[in-house]
Every structure is written in C-alpha cells, then in structure tokens.
Design a protein around this nucleic acid. Structure first.
Length: 484
RNA sequence: GAUCGCCUAGCUCAGCCGGUAGAGCAACUGACUUUUAAUCAGUAGGUCCCGGGUUCGAUCCCCGGGGCGAUCACCA
C-alpha cells in the first residue's frame, strides 16, 4: 500500500492522519536520562507517552525507532500488549511518519530502552520517502536546498545549527551581563550607504518611491544611539547584506554582532573579544581548544597584540613605518610581489602586503593593531601616530573574525574622512562609503569617547563547530534558484 | 566573473572502447513478534540535468544552456 492509500485507510477508520495535538508525557532524551540505570531485561509499570518521527522499523513494525529533537527511543509493538485495532494501525505506518505512542517503559534483553506500546497513533503522515538510512543525504546541493530533509536525517546538521543557537544565546548573555549592553535593532533599509566598505544590495520602496540600500553594517545607527544616551552600551546581533561573491567563507547575508560602549577604547574592545569568545567556548563547548581542519586552535589566555606594520616587517623585512611616500610604498610592495593599484595610498599598500604575506599565518588568535588611517574612515586617529588609527582586527584560523576601534568622534575629522570616501567613490570605487551628513550632525551633538566592536557570528560558529563551509552554519544559505 | 570537476531510480552509488541502464537501501507482495543498517523470497521502479549536433545507434563524443562544488578574483 502506498503512502496516500494508507492515509486514506486511516481516514476511513475514523482517524485523522493530521492530528491536532498529542498528549506527550516525555521527550525521548528525558526518558533516556531518567532510565539510564534501568537494568537490561527489566520491565516496569511506568506509563509514558512519546511522540516523534519513525526513523526505522524492524520485524514487521514490532520495533520502531522513534526520533524527536531530544533523542531517540525504541517503540516496541508486541501483540501481547496491543489489541487487534492497535496492531492493525501498524499496517498504515511508514518510515518518516510522525506518531505518538503510549505504554510502559522497559529495557529489552538487548539493552535498548523501549516503550512497550499499548496505544499508538499516527499524528502526521509523511508522504515522501526519506533518504537512505545508512548513507543519509550527502548531496550537498540538496542538503542546502531542502534543509528540512537534511535535518531529518543528518545528526551533524542538527547539531551544528543547535550549537549556533547556543552560541548566540551565550553571546547575548555575555554582552548583556558582563558589558551592560542593551540589545537594539536598527534599520536594515538604509538611504545612505555607510558603516563598512562593501558593495550593497539596492531595493526600492514603492509608496516612498525611493531606493534603499540593504545595510552593509549597522555601525552608524548604533553610534547615534550612544549619542542619544539610550544606554552607555548598545549591541545588535543581526543580518548584514553584501552584494559580493559567494565562497566557503562568504554568504551574501551574514550575521554580525556589533557593540558600542561609551568611555571605553580599542584596548577594552580587545578584552571584550577575548572574554566573549572564551566565555562562549567554555559555556557551549566546555573547552578552549578547537580542531579546525589540520589546525588545533587554542583560544585560551591573553591573545597577542601585534601591530600590522610590525608583522609585515617580520614577514617581509620591510618596515613600512619608515616609508612616508605612497609611491615609495607601492614600489616596495611590487618588490615583494604584491600587486597594488597605481593609485593605492600608503595604508592601502600596507594592508595589501599584510593580507598577502601575513594573514594566512594567523592561525592562533591574534589582535592586529594600529590599522592605517587610509583604510579606516570611522576610526579615531592613533593617539601616538597620525598615520595610524586605534583600530584592531582579530584573526583566528587565518580569518578576520572581529574588528574594533576607538570610535572617531570629532565631527570635523569625520566630515573630512567622508569626503575622502566620496572622492574614492567618484573615482569609481563602488565600495566606498557615502557622506552621511546626518551622522556628522549627530557627532556635532557629541559622541562620548567610545569603543566599538564587531564580530562575524558565522565565522566564529564555523571555527567552534569545525564547519568547513559557511553554509553549514546558516539554516538557509543563499542559493541560485534553478531556472527551468 | 574566470578555470577545473560533478549531475544516472526516492537516497547512496556502479555503468568498459559509443551498442539502448544496474546494485544496495527505501517502496510493493509474502514469511517471520525480542530487533539494532533486522533477516529471507519475490515484484516494481529511469526525461541518465536540459536543448541541439555527429553517428546506423549517444548516459558515453561535440556545441550551447542550467545547477552544484573546489580554486582564483572580490570580500567579512
């Protein structure tokens, strides 16, 4: 009998193949824990009811593996415990059906905790066959396109996405309790592109007849909240959108955490990065050591803080701090085999050399401090050097996972930096930011000394869960629709 | 966007030199009420990603298209 026919059989017998509810007493995981000590071969008089999806059936339906999100329990359908009507229901069940089962707890002679069923009920018919039980669903495309099927059959997928949820929960706890932050939500639709150097998505509001950019970063709005004194510390964990290439490390929509706290600076933000990541690692995973590919990453202790130019010098022997002329810097880069645009500024050259020669080597957590002014339009000038800013990026596993700075709060300086961005934009750089005059106005009202911080939630999750592709840590990653 | 690779039954995969498609699991029929990827016997199941071309004949060779993956570019 096919699934549709069985569904009809259930209806004909007066049942509902799509039940309204079910009175479940226990989740599978709770039973496994409660009866962990129940000896092999023991029968009990403890009545329970469970509900979940049929993932395997053996011996003509006598043994059913019932899975729910908490775990698995065997359902034992023996004729001595079931009347004829109940036994007949077994005929209508298929792999994948969601059922409820009621009966007494026992542990079989083979050691499997089971419910000796007296009453069984189809709760939701599954009309499509499940992927093969042994190999599961391995086709990577189908796993992402039909995540629901992937989740039904692949424990690792469920585990990774659950871990992600635990990670963001721990993150909220830490930012709220340890840093006194309040979580806020700022616009996704931005009239002006700002907060990061990136290509945007453009969308349109009909009744306003206005184009908006999907935000590339929430930064400028969050700092406006600090200006307003909504709180001394605000944070947001939410989506950003960048219209750029897709890769194992890039999804067009990704989740960033950003935090701003008055009366702190970049040094405090480095403490935040370490404290947060270590807190998450400990509370969610109970360890500070993580395997990723061939690397073992140790998140413990104080992470080294090294200046970008210093690391570039270590790697190449070239001290860019002694080079003041952009042309000279470009020549030095060329000598090192690093390609830079003929118009590249000193800071852009340094960053290019850093990315080429240093980035991949930063497997263990490292704070890269003292970013060049040229590539940091929203960061405050370094208190000791006008060519640098108080900006740090944190690298783990060769990836940038966090970016932080002492926020630029001098409106005149910010105005000038925006104008530089506008010039770059007019010169054809479609990633350059726009002049946000209202943001400058906000700074004119006064942004207190302020540290700001952002972290890539997806990448952190990849590292902590050992996921090789960013899509593994996103429930529904961006895919190209299939054209017919 | 570029290069390389992949796409065969619901799922996991074979398929030789171009001769007209196979297995395991799932399904269906039957046996079996203490199984653990249950077992045993049998049955059925295909737009070989799509569209052209070459050929007597194309899953296979060629061209175009689609989707996915890896690497690169861009970037977080």
């Amino acid at each position: 009998m096919a699934r549709q026919a069985k569904l009809q059989t259930v209806r004909d017998a007066g049942g509902n193949p799509y039940a309204y509810t079910y009175d479940r007493t226990h989740e599978a995981g709770a039973l496994q824990a409660k009866y962990a000590e129940l000896p092999v071969g023991t029968e009990t008089e403890d009545e329970v009811s469970v509900a979940g999806r049929i993932m395997a059936m053996r011996n003509n339906g006598m043994f059913i593996d019932l899975h729910d999100p908490s775990g698995k329990i065997q359902v034992f359908c023996h004729k001595d415990s079931m009347n004829e009507d109940e036994l007949a229901k077994l005929e209508t069940l298929d792999l994948g059906d969601i059922i409820g089962a009621k009966g007494k707890i026992r542990r079989t002679p083979r050691g499997e905790l089971s419910v000796r069923v007296s009453h069984i009920q189809l709760l939701t018919k599954c009309l499509l066959p499940l992927p093969e039980k042994y190999h599961g669903l391995t086709d990577i495309e189908q796993r992402y396109r039909q995540r629901y099927v992937d989740l039904i059959v692949n424990e690792e997928s469920r585990d990774t996405l659950r871990k992600r949820s635990l990670i963001t929960t721990a993150m909220r706890d830490y930012l709220t309790k340890q840093w006194g932050g309040i979580e806020v939500e700022t616009p996704m639709l931005h009239p002006i592109l700002g907060g990061a150097t990136a290509k945007p998505f453009v969308t349109h509001h009909n009744t306003l007849d206005t184009d908006f950019f999907m935000r590339v970063a929430p930064e400028l709005y969050l700092k406006r909240l600090i200006v307003g004194g909504l709180a001394d510390c605000v944070f947001e964990i939410n989506r950003c959108f960048r219209n750029e290439g897709i890769s194992p490390k890039h999804n067009p929509e990704f989740t960033s955490a950003e935090l701003y706290k008055a009366f702190t600076d970049v040094n405090d933000m480095m403490d935040l990065t370490e404290g947060l990541v270590q807190y998450i690692a400990q509370t969610v995973f109970g360890t500070l050591e993580f395997k990723y590919g061939d690397n073992v990453i140790n998140l413990g202790g104080k992470w080294p803080r090294k200046s970008m130019c210093g690391l570039v010098m270590d790697a190449t022997g070239v001290d860019f701090m002694t080079i003041f002329d952009a042309a000279e810097a470009r020549a030095a880069a060329k000598k090192l085999g690093v390609h830079v645009e003929p118009t590249a500024k000193w800071g852009e050259v340094v960053a290019a050399v850093f990315e080429e020669k240093v980035e991949d080597t930063l497997i263990q957590p490292t704070h890269i401090t003292d970013f060049p002014l040229d590539i940091s339009p929203l960061a405050k000038v370094h208190r000791d050097n006008p060519r640098l800013t108080e900006r740090t990026e944190t690298y783990v596993n060769g990836w940038e996972i966090a970016n932080m700075f002492t926020e630029l709060n001098d409106p005149a300086d910010q105005q000038a930096r925006f104008e530089e961005q506008v010039k770059a934009r007019e010169a054809g750089n479609d990633e350059a930011q726009m002049l946000d005059a209202d943001y400058v106005t906000a700074l004119e009202y006064g942004l207190p000394p302020c540290g700001g911080w952002g972290l890539g939630v997806d990448r952190l999750t990849m590292i902590l869960t050992g996921s090789p592709n960013i899509r593994d840590v996103i429930c529904f990653p961006t895919l190209k629709p299939i054209k017919v």
